[in-house]
Write a protein that binds this DNA or RNA. Structure first.
Lengths: 228, 228
DNA sequence: GTCTATAGTCGGATAGAC
DNA sequence: GTCTATCCGACTATAGAC
């Protein structure tokens, strides 16, 4: 193995420019999520990244270019986080007719992973807020995120749900129900401030995430339970 | 009855200043909801209200003063919309021990009213977005809204839920479940853009609100159903 | 690639006539 | 109370030295 080949396999030593670029994207995720596009100034962004103001137009063309680059980085991160479960579900759906128990197990795994991502991980806090803001005022970044993550995940989720509810996949009632279940998770972010206050909590610790996940699981089991 | 007394009972002829003030608040609800505090400019606000730029500092002291006045107006509107149900629930809780069926009926009424408010009414669209943005970045307006509406409504909701779940009111598992159920409704706003696309809908029409409400009701009934 | 300096724009708020 | 005109600060983007 040549030194060149070895280098390609390990983390490549980032050039100075590439490093600045990366730090700017990380700063952008935090700052845009916290203050919104207009609320964030290029000075804030550069300061947080430890970079120069002029580095933004240099690397990304404009403030908006940096914003879109941040959206892309969310897609990449969410993709790598969710793709193991999504892949497993897609393979299961393609290969054989899923029975109830197998479908329920996959559904639980999907929701647990998703709730941990949305509620638990401190890094994902910025992602959720960024996405939430973009939904409030959808622009080019919304297209990137919707096509990059949401469509594929929702599709896998809806298919599993259709099996459990014994309804055709295209039934709008299945899709609506999928949204309501996702809402049970997302509320802890979109209304997180109010939720924490009403619960008398200071933050969503790991222990509390477990409490939430247990209830989410119970709710879902009851919602998809066969009618007797 | 004197003319003066008659005037007091009908809508009072608004003075020119009071009228401008009111139009500015209405514009503020729309514009701040759509673009956020920083994204909205005083020029946009004045134009939408058909008022002069200088009217904002004159009537409200500053752009922020107008923002807080808009928050207050949301509290008043939500109060008048929800208070009939909330009052009914509070009276029922105070006067007698509620049985399951009565509690369930009140819960359905509360959720139906709330979902119609959040998803259905076109005016409420601005309110929800305004509140959502304020949760993303809580400031003085959040206090006004939280203390003015959220606490009282959540309290009534949680008490009903505690009865149906046969658990003490203070049980965090009851409060968490309350949040998840609210999430089923709120998701159609906070993630409305994505939800509409995934459902293949253009907007939430009255007929579609009915579909959503039917599913919400079914979900809630299953969630609070007694364990067999 | 990174820096300083600055151009050019737009924002919120004010002054003062009416 | 309402208007026009204007100030002043903050912003994004660029130019050009290093």
């Amino acid at each position: 193995m040549t030194i060149q080949a070895a280098k390609r396999e390990t983390i490549p030593a980032p050039s100075r420019g590439e490093d600045t670029r990366q730090r700017l994207i990380e700063a952008a995720l935090e700052i845009f999520a916290a203050y919104g596009f207009e609320g964030a100034s290029t000075r804030m962004l550069a300061d947080r990244a430890g970079a120069n103001l002029a580095a933004i137009p240099y690397h990304f063309g404009s403030k908006e270019g940096l914003y879109l680059a941040a959206a892309h980085s969310i897609v990449e991160a969410a993709e790598s986080e969710m793709s193991p479960v999504i892949g497993k579900i897609e393979r299961a759906l393609a290969q054989r007719k899923l029975d109830r128990d197998a479908a329920a197990a996959l559904l639980h795994e999907l929701l647990e992973r998703f709730s941990a991502l949305v509620i638990g991980s401190p890094q994902a806090d910025s992602w959720s807020r960024f996405v939430l803001r973009e939904q409030l005022q959808p622009g080019a970044a919304f297209e990137i995120i919707f096509e990059g993550i949401m469509r594929k995940n929702a599709r896998a989720f809806t298919k599993l749900l259709a099996i459990l509810l014994k309804r055709p996949e295209g039934d709008p009632r299945v899709a609506v129900r999928a949204q309501t279940i996702l809402g049970e998770i997302l509320v802890f972010h979109s209304s997180g401030t109010a939720a924490l206050r009403l619960l008398g909590w200071k933050e969503f610790s790991a222990a509390r995430l477990k409490v939430i996940q247990a209830i989410l699981r119970e709710n879902v089991d009851r919602i998809v339970a066969p009618v007797k």
